[in-house]
Each structure stands twice: as C-alpha cells, then as structure tokens.
Amino acid sequence: MNTNVVPPQLAAVAAAPASAGAVGPSPGQDPLEREPIVNAVVAVEALLRQPRRVMYQLRQPGSGRLIGSMLFVGLMCSLIYGVVVGSFSMGTQLWAAPVKIAGGLLVCAIICLPSLYIFTCLSGSRAGLGEICGLLAGLVLLMTLLLLGFAPVAWLFSQSTNSVVWMGALHLLFWFIATVFGLRFLQTGFSHSQPRSAAGLNTWTLIFILVMLQMTTALRPLVGKSSTFFPAGKEFFVTHWEDSLKAEQTGPHRTSTD
C-alpha cells in the first residue's frame, strides 16, 4: 500500500472527547486506519477486518466514491443471495426474487435515511450527511456480505425441503444475524461522532427493522410462487406470517405465497 497518499490526521480526531457508548479511541489514531481504501475489494476487506478504517475514510473529503462502491457491492451480493432464495421455487422466481431483494433493500435504505439523519442530529452527533450515508452503506454491505456467506447453506436447505414456511424462517434467521452485525457497525460508527445519547439511534434501529420486515411482506412472494410480480392484497407482516403458517398446515407447499 502506498503510504505517501495517506491523508494527514486532523487535529480534532485526537482531541475528540469520549461520547455516549464510544468504543475505543476515535478512528484514525492508528496509522493503519488511515490507509486509503482504493477499490471495492479493499472496502470489503476493510469492512470485515478493519471497520474503523472505513469509518475514518467516510469522514475524509471525497468519500462519495467509497460509499458508491460499498452500495454497488452490497447490491451485487443481495442479487446473488436473491438467486439462492429464488432457487427454492425456480422458474420466474430466479429473477424476481433477486430483483425484489436488491430493490427492497435499496428502498429500505433510501426511505430510512432521512429519519436516520434526523435522529443522529437530535442525538447531538456531529456526523454529516455524507458520513451517515456512508455508515448506512456500510450496514447494507456488511448485511449482504454475511447473507452471501449464508448463501450455500440456504441453497442446500432450499433443495432439500418443500416447506415454504421453513425456508422463510431460515432466511429470516440469516437476515436477522446479518442485520445485527450491520447495525453493530452503524452503532460503532455513530458512537465515534460524539452523540449525547444513543436513544435516537435505538429508536431508528427499531424503525429500520420494522420497515425491512414489512418490505418482505410488501414484496411477497420471495420464497414461494405467485402468478403476479407484486401481491394482490396489502397485509401487515405479522398477519401474513400467521396466514402462511395456517396455509402450510392445509395447502400445497411450494405454491403458497411467502
């Protein structure tokens, strides 16, 4: 790595006071964390091994390229995971599921971004809009990377079961684990931006999870088959899960909507 292009550490980094829930010193204090992230592969590696390096780079001028590459890789990963989800039902689901999962994830991020920014500001955080976008992009990338890691397991199960509910539950479990790691990245990044409290971010986390869960119902079917791309009726996700469980006990498996 060429260390000549490492941006200088800014004085305020070292001077930043400890804030609510801050995990260790501010990013950038270790010279390794100040090494620039030159491409998407380095971004993925940094996110997994040196998340503080990503956090530091998101605060530097010109972080837009890093954010763009993280989002792009995140969308690619979600498309691949979507193919695995669609492989349960095959046919049109092979393209419909990836499109819905990638699109749904992007829409979730877009509609939750304004409230995330407002909540971080209300918490007294000094993170700018660019940094917030970057942390959200990091969340999306980390989530989808983990989902990609789960993809072989998910594929194996999808080829060995006929139960839509079982596959739905398995994907939800994988999604939940991936989301926990993604949110942990976001919360760590947030804790280094001098917030007064984490209450705002916790509230937003709840909203984000609810939106994502509802998105799985709004874009159904993701696992099972359907004659239409979008569902005919509107349902709350809990109601939908109840209906799917009832249908599982009575109806045919791979044709129900999930």
């Binding site: 305020a12 980094v13 930043a16 605060r59 993170a127 700018g128």
Partner: peptide
Amino acid sequence: MTATASKSASKWPLSLLLRAEP
C-alpha cells in the same frame, strides 16, 4: 470527529438546529 466533518456539518443550518448546541 474531524475538523472537516464538523465544518461541513455547520454549513447546513438544519443540522445546527437539530443538534441544539447551546
């Protein structure tokens, strides 16, 4: 927090109002 970030944040009056620093 870097000086750059705080400078960019303070440019936007909305974030200044929301943060409510005395």
